[in-house]
Every structure is written in structure tokens, then in C-alpha cells.
Design a protein around this nucleic acid. Structure first.
Lengths: 178, 178
DNA sequence: TCGAATTTGTCAGCATGCTGTCATCTAGCC
DNA sequence: GGCTAGATGACAGCATGCTGACAAATTCGA
């Protein structure tokens, strides 16, 4: 929902894209290029912004009955996949977020009884995050709504397109992350 | 950077995925399915979260010298593409955001002299957002850094992959937006 | 034309994520 | 062993985006 949005098209002057073969040509005198890749990429960027917002909202709504939010099931999912527990900065590294952001989430989740901080034999101050029984229960309930949701949203999408898109997103992450 | 993250793999038990032909089989006794599509989709969701954060950071860094941020060039880009101006709720509809969020951004941008609120012949209270000369200048400077950035980030990516990914993201947006 | 439904501006509160800072702890190197 | 660099916890401030609420303006149908 971006460059071709109907709300915008109504009031927009169509960019005068001049195509010459596969290349592009400067337009509107500002020296910029309306190359297909540029347009595609910027549209993809705006679409990722939009999709991110929708996924957060969807994730919140989907799990509101479980005492979870999008931010929480990101954490609970990572912790559930770990065997020996993870430290808060460890969770942050997996999710690619700041440790402070994760710390704030885990503190609330600990207060809510979903996780506990257990002593870490490897580190005196940096405790291990583990799921409580309530947390494990919440994780299983999460799976019960999240799995059908995932399948529902992909049932008419070829697996090759999912793979291509995931590969592209991963490549962009890798490029921007360094 | 998610389900196959090295930080996580070190401490994770590999899920015992049992494949039968193209279908999947319940594992670990909780009735959940490790179907390929489910894994792909959840990985894509987490990757979109991650990419969103990186794009915001990249967009902020790229335009910090222009008095812009990611949130601002989203707005300035939409306004620049419009001919007769857009109202704040109109911008919000194009971007798929709340009008309140956009209003806060535009208020600051107006105070910074990038945009102005002009009378709207169609509506007494809902003013039109237009770029000032300073705003147009900022938009052109934005293009000068954003266009090479877009081309740089896609130079080794086949255009077909960009199209496939954009189409998938758009399809997900359309599904989640209704 | 009139009244209800919708849209809009405005204010408030909240969640999420970022950066910066500082003290403390850990790990690696001499 | 000791010292320095890096990692961590804790606190603060800030940006972005969401929702709810209310009054005013607009739109649309009876």
C-alpha cells in the first residue's frame, strides 16, 4: 500500500517514466532516475513498514487472550526454543534488538509469572531467562493460534514465493546489519 | 535473522521435523505441525520485524544531515507526489497509519518549515499539507541520497525476485488490512 | 431539508524500540 | 596476577505509532 495506493493516485501526477529498453531515463528535470529497481525497492521498503505495523497489530489481537503481545511472543518463542536458557542480551542478539528493549519486556513477563530469572553458572550478574509452567502453557496456547494463522495466511501462496521472499529479506537484513 | 540465527542455534534443540512426502507430521507430542510453510511464514514474520527496524535505522542515518528521519521522509515523499496537496488523514490513509501519528509528525515538520498548512477549499477545518521551498529542497536532497541507496541495495538482486517479494508483501498487507 | 453517520482536530495515555551513560562484572592479554 | 577491553544491569530520555475520547465539521440518505 504505497506508491500505487488509490488514495494517492487520485491526487498524484503519474511520474513520466521514460523507458528505453531495459534502462531508464531522467525525468522532470531533477536528474533523478525512475529505474524499475529503484521504484520496486522503495515500494518494497514502504510495504515492509506497512506490513510490520499490520503484523504487530495482528499478533497483538491474536494473542490478547493469552496475556501476550507481539513483543512478548517474540521473546517467549526464542526462550522456548532454547534448552539451557538464554540471557537477556542473548535474546536481544537473536532478535536483533537492543538489550534494554528486551529487558523491559522480560521484566514485565517475569512480574506476570511467564518467565523466571535463574542463576547463571557462567555469569554472576547476567541471569538466565527460563519459562515458568505458566509460560510454557502460554507458549503452547500461542502455538495453537499461531500455527493455524500461519497456515491460513499461506495456503494460497506457492512455497517458492515464500522461499524467494524470505531469501530476499534475509539478504537485505544481512546487508544492513553489518 | 531468526529461527536459524547462530546465537540461537548454539543453545537450541533442533525441532524433530518428520517429513512424509510433502506433508508434515506432529512432533514432540503437542499436536503442532512443523509444516514447511508454517516455518517459512513465521521466519518471514520475524525477518520482517527485523528488517523494519534496520530500515528505520538506515533511513534515519541516511537523512540525518537533511533534518529528516524515516517517519518524515515517508510523509514528505507522499506530499511531494501529490499535486493539489493532501490532508493529514489523507496522508495517513496512503501510509496506512493513524491520522494522529501523522499529525504529530506534520506538526513538527511545519514548525521546522518543511511544510505548510494551507486552506482547503473542500473542507473548513481539514487543511492541506504542502511542501515549502525548504521542504522541496529537502525532498530533492532526499532523492539524491535515497535513489543511489535503493540502487546500491538492489544491484545484485534479480528484478524478478524484487517483484515476487513485493507481490507477496502486498498480498499479505491486503489480507491483514481488511 | 433535516438528522444520523462519518470524518476530522485535538488531547491524553500507553507500548515498543532506540540511544546514551555509568557502575560493575567478565574475559582476554601482558 | 594484574590490567584493559568488552559485556551487562540499571536508569533516563526520546521517537514512533497505537488506541480512546470528545467536540466540531462534513456527508449522505430519508
Amino acid at each position: 500500500m504505497a506508491l500505487n495506493d488509490p488514495n494517492l493516485q487520485r491526487v498524484v501526477t503519474r511520474p513520466t517514466v521514460v523507458r528505453v529498453g531495459n534502462s531508464a531515463v531522467p525525468v522532470s528535470g531533477n536528474g533523478s532516475l525512475h529505474s524499475p529497481k529503484r521504484m520496486l525497492f522503495l515500494d518494497l521498503v514502504l510495504s515492509v513498514f506497512r506490513l510490520n505495523g499490520l503484523l504487530v497489530a495482528e499478533g497483538d489481537a491474536m494473542t490478547e487472550g493469552l496475556g501476550l503481545t507481539s513483543a512478548r511472543w517474540k521473546v517467549i518463542g526464542v526462550v522456548a526454543l532454547s534448552t539451557a536458557g538464554l540471557t537477556v542480551p542473548g535474546i536481544a542478539r537473536v532478535l536483533g534488538q537492543s538489550r534494554q528493549a528486551v529487558q523491559r519486556i522480560t521484566d514485565v513477563m517475569a512480574k506476570d509469572g511467564l518467565i523466571t530469572y535463574e542463576p547463571n553458572p557462567k555469569h554472576k550478574r547476567s541471569l538466565l531467562v527460563l519459562l515458568t509452567e505458566e509460560g510454557k502453557s502460554a507458549y503452547h496456547e500461542l502455538r495453537e493460534v499461531q500455527d493455524p494463522w500461519a497456515l491460513r495466511n499461506t495456503e494460497d501462496i506457492p512455497i517458492e514465493e515464500l522461499e524467494t521472499s524470505l531469501r530476499l529479506v534475509r539478504r537485505l537484513i544481512q546487508r544492513l546489519d553489518k
